[in-house]
């Protein structure tokens, strides 16, 4: 690997295990992610991709192991997890916008309530973000008045409003009708080009080729492949990866 050794990784995961009852879902995962990397996570259904990404901000509680976010140990018992989560954005498969708030209010909520920004400040940022995701005319729409693709773009803007150091995506386009996938991927590609650090669970091969620098393949709770996107996709080292890629390509 060609990591500059002087730069501290943005995320370091060491021996992460997750059990659901007796089921061993994540098996001692260890990996390191640096600033500006766009890491795609692929793998068959049930392999633990969602569980893995949800453990990073402890929406899912890891059973054991350590997660370091910069200098902070996310898994440290004395850390205030809410404070840590401010800097780790998350985008969900089903958008999870707040249905009782407008698009603008969805984006302004956390900056005003969590970061105690002024309403005026937060509104200015929120409008700029809506513009960035191409929805400046939807500020006062409620989620149910938006298409899936539009909702997901608002959800991305909502995460960006907290100015996160890293963004986690769990299959952000898999709940969308095919004609809406592109508009969401375009936003993600532009974020990647701007240098945003991202971990993206996705099987969108075009996005991976276009925007991601690295692919992890997760099978049965283990990372069986970790390398540059081209190499993993064109020339995987594992038979399981070949089978799996054969199905989705």
């Amino acid at each position: 690997m060609t990591n500059e050794p002087q730069e501290k990784p943005i995320l370091h995961i060491e021996g992460l295990n997750k059990y659901f009852d007796d089921l061993h879902i994540l098996k001692s995962l260890t990996t390191t992610i640096h600033k500006g990397e766009v890491v795609a996570i692929m793998g068959p259904s049930g392999s633990g991709k969602s569980t893995f990404i949800r453990c990073i901000n402890r929406i899912e509680e890891p059973t054991s192991g350590q997660i370091f976010f910069g200098d902070i140990e996310v898994t440290g018992p004395d850390n205030n997890i809410s404070n840590i989560r401010r800097d780790i954005g998350m985008v969900f498969q089903n958008f999870a916008l707040f249905p009782h708030l407008t698009a603008l209010e969805n984006i302004m909520l956390a900056p005003t309530k969590v970061k105690k920004k002024s309403k005026a400040d937060a509104k200015e940022t929120a409008l700029a973000l809506l513009k960035r995701v191409g929805l400046e005319d939807k500020a006062s729409s409620y989620p149910e008045q938006l298409s899936g693709g539009q909702q997901q773009r608002v959800a991305i803007a909502r995460s960006l409003a907290m100015d996160p150091k890293i963004l986690l995506f769990d299959e952000p386009t898999s709940a969308l009708d095919p004609e809406m996938v592109r508009e969401v991927l375009d936003v993600m590609v532009s974020l990647a080009k701007d240098g945003m650090t991202m971990i993206v669970v996705s099987h969108e091969i075009n996005f991976i080729k276009e925007a991601s620098s690295r692919v992890l393949v997760l099978v049965d709770g283990e990372i069986i492949e970790d390398g540059p996107s081209n190499q993993v996709i064109e020339n995987p080292s594992h038979q399981r990866t070949k089978e799996f890629l054969g199905k989705i390509l």
């Binding site: 998350m90 969900f92 707040f98 909520l109 969590v114 970061k115 909502r158 907290m162």
Partner: peptide, 16 residues
């Protein structure tokens, strides 16, 4: 449950 998860992933405390 996704509503709580989304809120907490933005840094809202349980009370918030």
């Amino acid at each position: 449950i996704a509503q709580s998860e989304a809120a907490q992933s933005l840094g809202l405390t349980q009370l918030q």
